[in-house]
Design a protein around this nucleic acid. Structure first.
Length: 205
DNA sequence: TTCGAGATCGGCT
DNA sequence: GCCGATCTCGAAG
């Protein structure tokens, strides 16, 4: 139950280059309502300098939050059925953000199970869309200030992660700049999503 | 265990 | 129209 009341990360934590922030988010805890998830896998996206970023082609209504101040959540809808959540990093206007890819449910497991009745608990937040499902995060939380202790969606301090437990590698599910090693995860953690290289979809006949 | 296709729709070219 | 920062299920190896 301590996860739900732990202190939020300060905004200064996010007001730094995204490549510094991303690996340090591992072990931190995302809280929404009665559910808390300890992050085990993240990816960095660097705004206008990153062809794989939603912000690469400039500001739109959808990605506007990324261009705002750090420490806010960018929630988007994709594949006609999934939500994913990012945390905005770096100087305002750079539009850098960290995609939260996976984690372990450390509080409110019974609520998360209700939303995903089948499968083992370690799969509850294993993958970016599963993570938002476990936490019941959707479009309504786009722009939420995760550094505000009164915010419904917030990021709080977790345990310290030893640097030797960090692993780094290529990002998942993207076609552009797929070679950049901007994905970090906790070595050997069962809640880390399985790596699948990007495969272009074919249209049905 | 690995692979591929279907689901499903908003955003952008 | 086209395609996606995904997930699931079923078929094949």
């Amino acid at each position: 139950m301590g996860e739900l009341t732990a202190p939020v990360l300060p905004r200064s934590f996010f007001d730094r280059p995204v490549l510094d922030v991303a690996p340090q988010l591992l072990g931190a805890i995302l809280v929404h309502g009665d559910v808390a998830v300890r992050l085990t896998e993240v990816e960095a996206y660097d705004g206008a300098n990153d062809p794989a970023s939603h912000a690469f082609r400039g500001r739109t209504a959808r990605n506007a939050v990324m261009f705002g101040p750090p420490g806010h959540a960018y929630v988007y809808f994709t594949y006609g059925m999934h939500f994913c959540v990012n945390l905005v990093c770096g100087e305002q206007g750079r539009a850098a953000a960290v995609l939260l890819r996976a984690g372990k449910v450390v509080a409110g497991v019974e609520h998360a199970r209700k939303r995903r009745p089948t499968g083992p608990d370690r799969d509850l937040a294993r993958g970016p869309a599963r993570l938002t499902k476990a936490l019941d995060v959707d479009r309504a939380l786009d722009g939420a200030d995760v550094c505000d202790p009164r915010s419904p969606l917030r990021i709080v301090e977790g345990d310290r992660v030893p640097s030797e437990a960090l692993r780094v590698g290529p990002r998942v599910g993207i076609s552009a700049a797929a070679d950049r090693p901007w994905r970090w995860w906790l070595d050997g953690d069962p809640t880390v999503s399985a790596y699948r290289p990007h495969t272009p979809r074919r249209r049905r006949p």
